[in-house]
């Protein structure tokens, strides 16, 4: 495959309270370049011309840290299933293509600059209950609590969430339900998570509301863009947990773990 000529329309915004605009750039890319490397090259040439480069977040560049966050041609993390922006390669584009790049947009993710947004609302949600309260040193021998293989796999499927926020960016309600449900399910299906199951469900959902995220209206777009392919079934789990927590009046009530 040979090099491709690309036109970029990139969202530029100088600060949180500034008005943004699209700017257009021409660049050439090779098929083996990652999408972010293509942007690196654009930035290198902007800097050489003493122009401000495009600000965007990235860190691990291998799809696990969750730092990269671009909406590419209207799709969070761009084309390709189960990938983050940093795992997107230019061979996905054709010569002469125009690519539009925007930040993850949501009221709860304010723009810091250009394509960089503030996702600290996710940390606030986790602070509300996304943990098991076990101080260091107090844990029993790891094999004293058995976890069936299926259950461990179920927890792991949810725990694979990288907290990137693509689910929020793509949702017309800017709902964080997929994120919250993944965090919740990871802990709530495990025996170690049972003591705080009820409170956790209520508290995390409340924190999501407080942070200004919207509600779920079953659009399924979150599942479609999730780089870790977390299923919307996880949201159904959350709904059951919240309903359940309203029926169970105390943590002393019998727990049903399915073990």
């Amino acid at each position: 495959m040979s090099d491709v000529d690309i036109t970029l329309k990139v969202w530029r915004q100088d600060g949180p309270d500034q008005k943004g605009r699209f700017e257009t750039y021409q660049t050439q890319a090779t098929p083996d370049m990652s999408f972010l490397e293509m942007l690196d090259v654009v930035n290198d040439s902007l800097e050489e011309g003493q122009k401000l480069p495009i600000s965007f977040d990235s860190d691990c560049r291998e799809g696990i840290c969750g730092m990269c966050s671009l909406v590419i041609n209207g799709v969070a993390h761009g084309p390709g299933e189960g990938t983050t922006t940093c795992q997107l390669y230019m061979r996905s584009f054709a010569d002469g293509d125009t690519i539009t790049i925007e930040p993850f947009r949501a009221r709860s993710f304010p723009v810091i600059r250009d394509l960089v947004v503030d996702r600290s609302a996710f940390d606030d949600i986790v602070q509300a209950g996304g943990y098991n309260s076990v101080n260091t040193g107090s844990a029993p021998d790891a094999n004293s609590v058995l976890v069936s293989k299926d259950r461990a796999e179920e927890a792991m499927d949810a725990a694979a969430c990288i907290g990137c926020g693509a689910c929020v960016a793509t949702c017309k309600n800017a709902s964080a339900m997929l994120f919250v449900s993944a965090k919740l399910k990871h802990l709530n299906v495990l025996p170690q998570g049972q003591p705080e199951r009820r409170e956790r469900s209520r508290a995390m959902l409340k924190a999501m509301d407080d942070a200004g995220f919207g509600h779920c209206t079953n659009e399924y777009e979150c599942e479609a863009v999730c780089p870790k392919e977390i299923s919307v079934g996880t949201i159904a789990f959350l709904n059951r947990e919240v309903y359940r927590s309203s029926l169970v009046t105390s943590s002393l009530a019998p727990t049903v773990t399915g073990e």
């Binding site: 098991n132 076990v134 040193g137 021998d141 976890v147 461990a152 796999e153 495990l190 170690q192």
Partner: peptide
């Protein structure tokens, strides 16, 4: 032990 108690979903055998 600490990580298992925190809910780290380590790989398991069929017996748990």
């Amino acid at each position: 032990d600490q990580c298992a108690a925190q809910g780290v979903p380590f790989a398991r055998e069929y017996g748990g």
